[in-house]
């Protein structure tokens, strides 16, 4: 589905341009300033400055190895920047750890399934709810006595339609359900900034809409800022308010979907190639 490349789409999108530009600007929720990371001589993310506003969904695209996941890792804290800054609500969080950034409102979903495999589905969600409620150090009360945490977890599981499988260990779940659980963790975490790294990767065609609906629901809450790494152009077109394009670690295009998809640099750098080839990026960085 590389429909973005054809001329009709470009025409249609460009007509919508002026209306979006009219929105008044408020200070960005999340901002990266000259963000850079080098691994030896290789610059994986190169001087990326970009601001993300409240209530927007930004798709980040680029060929494999463009630095999308690395950029995510820099924002959510799995990697520390070699240079540049990350700001959340004006606060410099460049030197903060992963857990501290999570507390401040950055929620990150992972490209490869990254769950608590030996725990049950419900326990996975409960852990997130428990972290949000700051009860992790509750040493001497029974976990099963915290009814409100369990109810909240089950509520989220009902939302992603995993409630029937709540007692199964995660390792026994089919891949599609694990992806749903990944989204469930984000819903339970309910952060200000949500980062999805290819949420539909490896899912069958009929499962993809379920995930997209869940993300669309999250987007309805206008307080959230969503960042989405995605290869599927149809997904981007239905969800994104804005697209930024990374190429060789640098930000090469930024704008509304129609505009960006038509820009020559994207045509050349990204859409001309086969973007849906299996990803080989490393999540852990």
């Amino acid at each position: 589905m590389q429909a973005g490349a054809d001329g009709h789409d470009c025409l249609r999108y460009s007509t919508q341009l002026p209306e979006i530009r009219a929105v008044t600007r408020e200070p960005p929720v999340l901002e990266t300033e000259n963000l850079t990371i080098r691994f030896g001589g290789h610059v994986a993310v190169d001087n990326v400055s970009c601001a993300f506003e409240r209530g927007t969904l930004t798709a980040i695209v680029g060929p494999n190895g463009a630095g999308k996941t690395t950029y995510f890792n820099l924002v959510s804290g799995q990697l520390r920047a070699s240079a540049g800054r990350v700001r959340l609500n004006g606060e410099d969080i460049t030197r903060k750890g992963v857990a501290e950034r999570c507390d401040r409102g950055i929620g990150r979903a992972f490209q490869l399934t990254n769950l608590f495999a030996n725990l049950s589905v419900r326990e996975n969600v409960r852990l997130v709810v428990q972290s949000r409620a700051n009860r992790g150090f509750d040493i001497f009360s029974r976990a099963s006595a915290h009814v409100e945490l369990i109810e909240r977890a089950e509520h989220v599981l009902a939302e992603v339609r995993l409630i029937d499988k709540r007692d199964m260990p995660v390792s026994a779940l089919p891949h599609g359900d694990q992806r749903k659980l990944e989204v469930a963790l984000m819903i339970a975490l309910s952060p200000q900034v949500l980062m999805f790294d290819e949420p539909t990767a490896g899912m069958s065609v009929d499962e993809v809409p379920v995930i997209l609906d869940l993300i669309r629901d999250l987007k309805k809450d206008r307080d959230r800022t969503i960042l989405l790494v995605e290869h599927k152009m149809d997904v981007i077109r239905t969800l994104a308010d804005r697209i930024i394009v990374l190429h060789n670690g640098a930000l090469v295009a930024d704008g509304e979907p129609g505009e960006v998809m038509c820009s020559p640099i994207v045509q050349e750098a990204y859409l001309g190639k086969a973007p849906e080839a299996a990803s080989t990026e490393v999540v852990h960085g």
Binding site: A99, R108, S131, H284
Partner: peptide, 9 residues
């Protein structure tokens, strides 16, 4: 890795 990402130190 994930425990840290959901806010546990």
């Amino acid at each position: 890795f994930r425990a840290e990402a959901i806010g546990y130190r």
